[in-house]
Design a protein around this nucleic acid. Structure first.
Lengths: 336, 336
DNA sequence: TTGTAAGCGTTATCAG
DNA sequence: CTGATAACGCTTACAA
């Protein structure tokens, strides 16, 4: 690095390193004019304190990490936006890690965070509810953790998530009252936290309406667009559903595409509702009924919880769940 | 931090700190069995080398920074995905900074990167082409920089961007040959790099078709959905356009919404084409013609350039432009 | 193959 | 208000 360091700067100024150091802190006793002179020359020389030395000195990194399962969908980018904004206004730096839905990756990332790199972690879980000893590392290293959206139930940490059960129940009930009898549930993985919770809302709504649960109507998909399409094509042709409740946006989009291709009329032949953070659901053909999660707010709040803990010097966040309510927005795709 | 350090670990093992340190490096001379024993006990005690101490020692942070103007749109999340993936496979950490289209913020972020925090920067510019002395800081501190999408022409760095001029020309020409006579150009800011380049394609296409440029048809919008809507409403009612070319997705979506609301038939009354990375353009009402930028690839390539430079120990990236071609996908919204 | 020791750039403490 | 000094935890010559 073509870096000037504090020693050189001090030498050039005819001062000690301590005095120079003080110029960069706000609380220290220092002659205002000395301070000003130091800052001016520092500016000229392009000096600023090496953060690794500082961090090493007082084990503060002013950095948080965000771990998410995937990237490039509306939900996570909006949540991330909320987190980043919160971090920025708290003067923190934000490291971002993607797991691609792989718990192994998650573990790798977590491990890389236990050497003081970050002061706290915000994450949306990738795994299934078992196998997360890797999170104990954070506890051991006293790095506070906050979950958002997807979480591990047995890990002690604050959770900020949506009222998925309730909204799923509501969405399913809405389909039922709109006349649907054979409602399929589309999900990536019915065992992970959100897939599971949302399914529970679905099954309970069916149950309460006196509709027997047909396991065949629960369709597990993948993350790949072509695969999803083919799975749905196959499933729709054999199952003849008249309603679709999709746990994630991507699945609903493929369903929509399939219906358009196959001439299945929405909402006449089939009604469709899904979880989605898309801001153009109203422009789709037909306009899509959605359960809209407050993604931005979720990120913002989760980060807020973390920074509160950090301010209080807490080494963990209390086991506590913050439920943000989602909104069921009925549009053409599920009108009766 | 409840951190074990190398000294304690060494003591517990009856070894010196150097030997322990060697166990964590791959190249050093060390007895394999000693190494194994060290690693095992380290695991037990939850030890891993403090990265700030390491970074301080050999001024390597294994971290890059990404600076983007905004968050939560398809383009940047996909680009980010490409960058993150590249970083991950190179064993680097990724810091993310958002400027909210504010050059001041950009400067603040840049400044915070010149103390060794990062080894390189990938950024999409927020400013207008002047006023970027703040980037000299990176050069002074020998931190290599790569631009993607939006750049500053006078800054020496590699640029990875789309062939915006060509695609804009093509898109506009397509509208013209589809019969449009009064094509409006929607843009957030016609002076910044992409807004400007895309406008050039638009004006040249008009020109080559013998259509006189009408400045009134260039409509500058904001970033706010309601404001955009109102601006367009006003503009459309007075200008009566029969074609729309939007420099960014968001503007086209508002145009679409407006037309839907006002009963302006697309493509009969008005044809619409826009830059967009949406993967559901085909599902819109009507299916939207788009210029699709290779966002993911752009991020991936930009990061690739940076890591190449890093591997070669270069302190800068050469002034050089990589143009990735966009694809004009004609759908219903602009069919004649 | 292992140990010793210097030093990376800062800052808190203490003394002046 | 300013200066000297030790320490943060690690790595790498160099010595053994």
């Amino acid at each position: 690095m073509g870096q000037v360091n504090i020693k050189e700067l001090a030498a050039k100024l005819g001062l000690s390193t301590s005095t120079v150091s003080r110029a960069f802190r706000n609380n220290s006793d220092i002659n205002p004019s000395t301070k000003e002179r130091i800052l001016r020359v520092a500016e000229e020389l392009g000096y600023s304190p090496n953060i690794y030395a500082s961090s090493l000195r007082d084990s503060k990194s002013k950095t948080i990490a965000v771990i998410i399962p995937e990237f490039g969908n509306n939900f996570f980018s909006q949540a991330l936006k909320g987190i980043e904004q919160q971090a920025r206004s708290n003067g923190y730096h934000t490291l971002i890690y993607v797991t691609e839905d792989d718990v192994q990756q998650e573990a790798v990332h977590i491990r890389s965070m236990c050497n003081g790199r970050v002061e706290g972690v915000i994450m949306s879980a990738s795994g299934e509810g078992l196998n997360h000893i890797h999170l104990n590392l954070l506890k051991e290293h006293q790095v506070p953790l906050v979950f958002f959206d997807r979480f591990y139930e047995d890990v002690e940490a604050t959770i900020v998530t949506g009222d998925d059960y309730k909204s799923s129940y509501k969405a399913t009930k809405h389909l039922i009252t709109s006349g649907c009898k054979r409602i399929v549930y589309l999900v990536i993985n019915k065992h992970i936290s959100i897939g599971k919770t949302r399914m529970q809302g679905y099954t309970d709504a069916l149950n309460d309406a006196g509709i027997a649960l047909d396991e065949a109507l629960i369709i597990e998909c993948t993350n790949n667009r072509e695969e999803i399409y083919n799975i749905l094509k196959q499933a729709f042709s054999t199952l003849k559903p008249d309603g679709v409740f999709a746990a994630v946006e991507r699945l609903a989009m493929s369903a929509l595409r399939l219906c358009n291709d196959q001439g299945i009329a929405i909402p006449q032949d089939l009604k469709l509702v899904c979880f989605s953070c898309s801001d153009i659901a109203d422009l789709l053909n037909p306009a899509l009924s959605t359960v809209r999660q407050p993604a931005y707010e979720m990120g913002f709040r989760a980060a807020g919880v973390l920074f509160d803990a950090l301010k209080k010097q807490q080494t963990f966040t209390p086991k506590h769940i913050v439920l943000l309510s989602s909104e069921l927005i009925v549009r053409t795709s599920s009108r009766s």
